[in-house]
Design a binder for these strands. Structure first.
Lengths: 236, 236
DNA sequence: TGTACATCAGTGAACGCGCGTTCACTGATGTAC
DNA sequence: TGTACATCAGTGAACGCGCGTTCACTGATGTAC
């Protein structure tokens, strides 16, 4: 009982590494066959272990899936945060950069993208632990708006008013970004940010899932056009 | 050889009906367990048949899936065309009506929606026969734009120019709507229509797949806000 | 109208497969004295 | 530093399951004369 956590034992190191290797192999299989066809037995096989050995590391297939989902959210989240947070760039450039970075990530990891933004895996119920990582991308985008948008621009412009339920929902989101103390982002900007976020992932999903086949595929130019239009709508 | 096709034989009637019943039962199972978990054996079981009997009607599971996909595309397509084509309504009302009708359909048939607009079923390759039905919704929306948009409004407005590859792609789409002879819809309107179409399905997907959980869920108000904003952007 | 033959729907058994998960076990790694 | 004991990683066999698809068959429905 009570091992030092500064110097790990060999067992602990081995355990940490195998936990990682299992996840990596699962990710490779995900990329090959998709989430619904992922199987513990085949992950074990590929690692040269017997399937029951995996249960020392993940108590069930569902837990392994959850780990993959969290990793995927963190991966896009990180990519988005980095591009959105570039201090040296203008707000507009940060917006464009973040959107492009997200799309690039999605195209490089289509099955991981599908895992988190596609249809839910049947029978799988996402645990609470996925909520935090899942919020990183939208929060990065909203944070960008907070830093960037001059309130008059954000509040004004064309489009309907934000009030009632929608304003209340926006206030909840504002609380997540700025902390419960004060709401630094006007609700109009938040709602427009949410719609831009939606539009962005709609574009990526349609591109990846083949809805533009025969029309706007390849979708580079449509994507860039949409980014520019969204940037204007956001006052960036 | 050569049976009259005016009066079907009893065999033919039975065959047509069973083909329909199999599809209906498959649709029910789709709604319960999702596309990836759909199984021929369980469809047969539910119909009181032996699993091998299904092969008289669909040569493989893939063919049954294809039939479901085509049906789903036709179902949304029909709903969209009806709402978009209402002669008695203003263009704006037709736009709003079509979007709401599509969302209502999606919420009533989430698994069918996921089947056609969610992540692709692993290992399934959509055959050409799905392309036509898959185009009905976008064509209905573009048709609405053609009928409605005064060219000046559609061509002008804020936003970047449409040229190069994007203009060429738009021209292809225009050919699909109006026939190869003349392009009655200006490319700017087409591109904006494509983005509105994307936005619409982005909204529905995020709502159905749970991305708004904890923020804009329930999504009624966000949806209505977005519709109004899109209508303005489209000059409706 | 009645009979001989052809078509085809549905049966039941089987093939061969892979899956998630449990469990008693062995042997190596770690800990306490 | 050395020994006795506890922990835990990985094994191998097994349980029980469901799947898609094939195939030889029987019996009912249809057709030609």
């Amino acid at each position: 009982v009570g091992q030092g956590n500064a110097s790990q034992t060999a067992r602990e190191r081995a355990r940490a590494e195998l936990t990682r290797e299992i996840k990596e192999e699962a990710r490779r299989q995900l990329a090959r066959v998709g989430a619904a066809a992922l199987s513990l037995r085949s992950v074990a096989r590929e690692l040269g272990m017997v399937s029951s050995a995996l249960y020392r590391y993940y108590p069930s297939k569902e837990d392994l899936l959850t780990a993959l989902i969290i990793d995927a959210y963190n991966a896009v989240g990180e990519v988005a945060e980095e591009a959105a947070g570039l201090a040296s760039a203008s707000p507009r450039e940060r917006w464009l950069g973040a959107c492009r970075a997200i799309r690039d990530w999605a195209r490089a990891h289509p099955h991981e993208y599908a895992l988190i933004y596609g249809s839910p895996v049947p029978g799988y119920q996402a645990p609470e632990a996925t909520i935090g990582p899942g919020g990183r991308v939208p929060l990065a985008l909203v944070g960008l708006l907070r830093d960037a948008a001059p309130p008059e621009v954000a509040r004004g412009g064309a489009g309907p008013r934000v009030d009632g339920v929608l304003a209340a929902q926006a206030a909840v989101v504002a609380g997540l970004v700025t902390g419960p103390a004060g709401a630094a982002v006007p609700p109009e900007a938040l709602v427009r940010g949410a719609l831009a976020w939606t539009q962005l992932f709609g574009l990526i999903s349609f591109e990846l899932f083949g809805q533009y086949a025969g029309s706007f595929d390849p979708a580079e130019e449509l994507f860039e056009f949409a980014l520019a239009q969204m940037a204007s709508a956001l006052g960036l």
